[in-house]
Nucleic acid binder design. Sequence first.
DNA 1: CGTGGACTAGACAACGTTGTCAACTCTGGG
DNA 2: CCCAGAGTTGACAACGTTGTCTAGTCCACG
Lengths: 348, 348
Amino acid sequence: MVDTAPPADAVGTRYGARPTMKDVAAHAGVGLKTVSRVVNGEAGVAQDTERRVREAIAALGFRRNDSARVLRKGRTSSVGLILEDLADPFYAPLSRAVEEVARAHGALLINGSSTEDPERERELALALCARRVDGLVIVPASRDHRYLEPEISAGVATVFVDRPPGRIAADLVLSENREGARAGVAHLVAHGHRRIGFVGDRPHIHTAEERLAGYRAAMSDAGLPVDEAWVAPGATDPERVRRDAGRMLGGAEPVTAIFAGNNRVTVTLVRLLAAAEHRTALVGFDDFELADLLSPPVTVVAQDPAAMGRRAAELLFARLAGAGGPPRRLSQPTRLVPRGSGELPPGG
Amino acid sequence: MVDTAPPADAVGTRYGARPTMKDVAAHAGVGLKTVSRVVNGEAGVAQDTERRVREAIAALGFRRNDSARVLRKGRTSSVGLILEDLADPFYAPLSRAVEEVARAHGALLINGSSTEDPERERELALALCARRVDGLVIVPASRDHRYLEPEISAGVATVFVDRPPGRIAADLVLSENREGARAGVAHLVAHGHRRIGFVGDRPHIHTAEERLAGYRAAMSDAGLPVDEAWVAPGATDPERVRRDAGRMLGGAEPVTAIFAGNNRVTVTLVRLLAAAEHRTALVGFDDFELADLLSPPVTVVAQDPAAMGRRAAELLFARLAGAGGPPRRLSQPTRLVPRGSGELPPGG
DNA sequence: CGTGGACTAGACAACGTTGTCAACTCTGGG
DNA sequence: CCCAGAGTTGACAACGTTGTCTAGTCCACG
């Protein structure tokens, strides 16, 4: 069979050798700049010349080397995204939204996961800057972003999402964490609960701190005391959540409802409560797939990660397009989604 | 407040101007090449000289321009990943695994979502090649990858995952789709089902085709006839799944069990069956979070997307390290996870 | 037939880095 | 006092592209 044989022409395409514009020019019998013009669709090339150049390009399998182009032009048409974990169901849509906006602006997206490690965030950010990304979208793991100062003043547009930057001023897109948590806890109060627990993320994380503040605000709004035994601002690993929640649910005056500070905590609590004797009310921060199919369906305070990613990316490209002015701070509302678990009465 | 003022030193760091090695050299009073040596940790620089260079680097906020470096060296230390949708819970861990392997090899990951559009896959792949990524990991949307021939022969290592490439030979990592589906359907047969439906993805997708073949094989193994009314190799959009499954479940001889061809179909069926009168057995291809918390908990044939990503990336870096030989084809086993829905008896 | 303008084309420098190579400064041994 | 050799250092070209500038060709018009 003839057509399964390797292509026999291979005019100058030895393995590993990439044809350059110079090669194309030689093959087509024209000057280097003419090839450049054809490749970039610039005007001023005669039809016949253009045809010859295109044939040479096809024959050699030429593809423009964007590294050289970038070096010459100064812009890479790529942006970087650094977040905690690309595989986290909360961040995946955010990443996807940034990608879509980038694509609409003709840019590629390079992303990296910081795994909540400040040093890794820094390494990634600087590596991306060395690649000369035009801009950065960052979900911070670090508490100090002064390392970005030279980059920002060199013109790298930078937008922070989900958590504020540390020790520098920059554009920012946040969820209304405090208000969301407050509404979620108020919802439990409205359904008759007076002893409400809070299980959240490590307190040095901004969102966790805000949500805890929202919890306290709602309790205070309702004139309810907070027993510190009801508050577990610990880690989110399942073991610890089980232990902390178990403590709240035992004892003489157990909580009748729990507010979960993020989706991982919520899921762990769903498992725990499903196995428990009493029906404890539950409201979780963050929506998650299938929440409506659990029994009882889980009431949540939903964020909109795709909208956050989209707005952050739009802010970024606005800056790249030359938008000036002081750092902007956008706030993305949350939405209470009652599904059942948050409407259980006390003493179920 | 003094410390909110912009940094006043700005030695040569005008906004938008990036210091180069030349600037650092001038600032430190040394030659250009000496700066290069320090930046790259090469030997042969006197301690005192090195100190002066490092001070200049810090003072100017210099960061090496990797575009220029790439142009000179030919390798970018970055790899590309193209998949259908980064936010899909099946692909997110795959992407994450590729990232981890890339990181271990000092490479950055650039990813793009093809959204199942062949033309977009092609655009993305070529854009990545123009950036001169060292290698590509691709979950194909296209059926014809001959467009990659010049790239591959120019030395871009290429590995396909989840689905085979079209019309070219290349390294490949697949799940055992056929065997997995066969085992899942056999599991239903072993629990007494004789009329089993299949709802799967569009048949031009390789995995969908294989899973359907596995379904037919299992039925044939058991000596069971397949009524074509039980087979719905349609789209995966919820409307169509509901319609097709509804048809199988109505009529004179309704199916007593359904095998779902992927996670999106499974979730739609869970919703449908939860609202139905009879309890229909269900086994789904692909695991998903919270499957164990539904009622009944969902029995699945689990793939291991992280392992697939890891193995694909390892194959890629092995090629980049010089591994020769013909294209390799790796197979990743699936695992049947009985949880309840697949063990329901017929006629529930 | 001369001239101006439109159109086409290519020579050349520059982008910021790294590899090559030559040159310089010491040191110590003969 | 000379020289070999080690230890430093920098000049220069090259990577592949694009911006600038000059020059040639052709046609219409006076």
